[in-house]
Design a protein around this nucleic acid. Sequence first.
RNA 1: GCGGCGGUCGUCUAGCCUGGACUAGGAUGCCGGCCUUCCAAGCCGGUGAUCCCGGGUUCAAAUCCCGGCCGCCGCACCA
Length: 571
Amino acid sequence: MVLGLKDKASKVADLAQRRGFYWPSWEIYGGVAGFYDLGPLGKELKNKIMELWKKIMIHPLQRIVVEIETPMITPYKVLEASGHVENFTDPVVECKSCGRKFRADHLIEEVTGLKVEGLKPEDLTKIIKENNIRCPVCGGELGEVKPFLLLFQTQIGPYEGDRGFIRPETAQGAFVNFKRVYQLMREKLPFGIAQIGRVGRNEISPRQGLLRLREFTIAEIEFFIDPLNPGRPPLDYNAKIRLLPWELAKGGQKEPVEVTVKEALEKGWIMNEWMAYWMLKAKELLNLLGVSDEDQYFEEKSPEERAHYSSQTYDQLVKTERYGWMEVSGHAYRGDYDLRRHIQYSGKDLYAFRKFKEPKRVRVKVVRWNAKELGMRYKSKAKEIIEELKRKDPEVIERELYDKGYVEVAGERIEKGIVWIEEREDVITGEKFIPHVVEPSFGVERLLYVALEHALKEKDGRLILSIPKYLAPIQAVVFPLLEEEALINKAKEVWQMLLEEGLRVEYDEKGSIGRRYARYDEIGVPVAVTIDFQSLEDDTVTVRDRDTWEQIRVNINELPEVIRKIISMKK
RNA sequence: GCGGCGGUCGUCUAGCCUGGACUAGGAUGCCGGCCUUCCAAGCCGGUGAUCCCGGGUUCAAAUCCCGGCCGCCGCACCA
C-alpha cells in the first residue's frame, strides 16, 4: 500500500470500505449519491458514539432531560406549521446558456427592487420575462422558475390527499409532544427532550462521503426554558471557549477568539446561558471523540444564513484534512417560534404556566348586561350584540356610556342601564406563556467520520486507528504466539474467559504475530493479548498497547480487570 | 444542477493515446500448506475483475463515440 501518496480522507474511506466501517449504499446497482451503509465495525462504533452522546448530553441532567422517539414520516400539516414546507423550498432559475442556477426571488429583488418574497414560481417567471432579467454572469436567457423542495415527499396510506414527508429534523416530534412531556415533568421548566433518529433531506448535490448525506442520523435536544426565568445551568463560567461571533465576523474577522464563557455572555456573543452550556458540552463531546481544542471552534451564522426559526445560531466546526472546517453540530436559539406556530396551526394549548411569587390583585373592569332585556328588545339579534360586547374593550364602552349615554354595537344603540361597567378585583396567580427553546443538534455520521479521521495515524508505514480506547468497537484480541496446539488451546481458553466477562473480544491465530498486531491496530483494537510458551508455565500473558506497542506481563486472572482499566473513561 | 478530472480482482495499480496475441498482468490482502519463540519475515499453492452501466462504431472494444450512474475538485445549499 502506498500510504504516503493519499490524503487522509482517502485513507479513511479506503479503510472504512476494506475493514467494514462503511461503504456506498446500493453498490451493486451502481450506488446512489448521498446514501451510505454502515458495516459491522461502523455500526458498533456509531452505537458507541450515540452512547457517549447520551452520557455527555443527557446523563448529567437526567432529571430534566429525557429521551423520546417519534416517527420519521411526518404529516404535511406539521411541517407546514414548522415552516419547512414553505422554507425548505427554494425558487431556482437556471440560465439556458451557461447552466448556472440562481435564487429567482433574490435575483429579481436585486435587479428590480421589487419585494417578491412568497410569490409563486409562475409569477416570478412572469416578472423575469416582463423585466427582461437575464443571467447576471453571462447575460444568457433564463428559463422557468422552479421550486426545489428539500423535503422527501410521500403519501400516507392509499389516499393521495394525505401527503407526508420524511422529517428533515427530529425536533418537530419533540415540539408536538411538548405538553405531554411538560406534564410528565410535573409542569416545571426548564426541561429537555432528546431524540436520536434518522432524517431525510433531498440534497441537491450530496458529496463528501459520510459528511453530506440524504439520509442520516441526528441527535438533538429541544431544551425548553422560561425566558423570564431560564434557571441556571451548571455552567463553568471560567471555562474557555473558541468563538467567532458574527459581530466580529461581519467586521472581517476570520479567526476565532478564545474567551471565557463569562466574557462571551457579558459581551452578548452568546445570547443565553443555556446556549453556552450546550456549546460547552458539545466541545467536551468532541474532545472525548478525539478532537482537540485547537481543531474545533464555534462560528455564529449571519442573520441571512440562519434557519427560519432561529434568532441565534452557532455551528460547531471541526477541522478535517480535505474538507476544511466542517459543521458537526448546530446550536440554535429557536425562541418561541416552533411552539407558537404549532399553537396556531393545531389550535391546541401548548403554553406553560408561570406562577407569580405573590398572587396579583388587580382591579379589572368588566362589561355586564341585562340579557333578559336585550333578548326581549332585540330578539334574534341579541346574540350578535352580546358577542360584540364581549369583544369590545370595557374602557371604550365605559367612555361611550359616559359621553353619550348609550353604546353602539351591531348597529344598535344600547342604552346605559342595559349595559353597564362593573369593577371587580381579580386574584391572578400566574400567567401562560410560550417557552423558549435552545437546541443543540448533532450529525451523528459526521461525528463518526471526524472521530475516524482524527484517530487515523501512521507508524512505520502501518495504519493505526488510535481511536479513544473507550470508543473501540472491539476491545481486545487474543493471539497464540504461534500456531501450535498447546498455545492455541490456552489462547482459546483465555478468549472464552474474556467473553464470559462480557468483553467484546476477537481471537486470531492466522499469520505471523506482527501481521496480526497490524491487522488489529488498523481497526483500533486497544489491547492485544498474546499467549506464549511462558504462559503455559506460569499463567501469565503479554498485554500489548495499540499506540505505544509496549508490552506488560500480567497474570491471566488479572486480565479482565487490566483490560477494563485500559478501556475505561476514568483515568 | 453546471464545469473539470476520474471509474480495471477486497485494496492499490499496469494496459487505454496508437483497437487484435488481454485467456486482462503485477503488488497487496484473504484462504490452505511448510516454516517461524513478539511487530505487515520467507517459500509453495489457491482464491479473487459483469474492465461502473447501457447503447453505438468495427471483422474485432478495457481501449474509439454517445447517454446514464457513481466518485473527487470548483460554484450554490446544509447537521
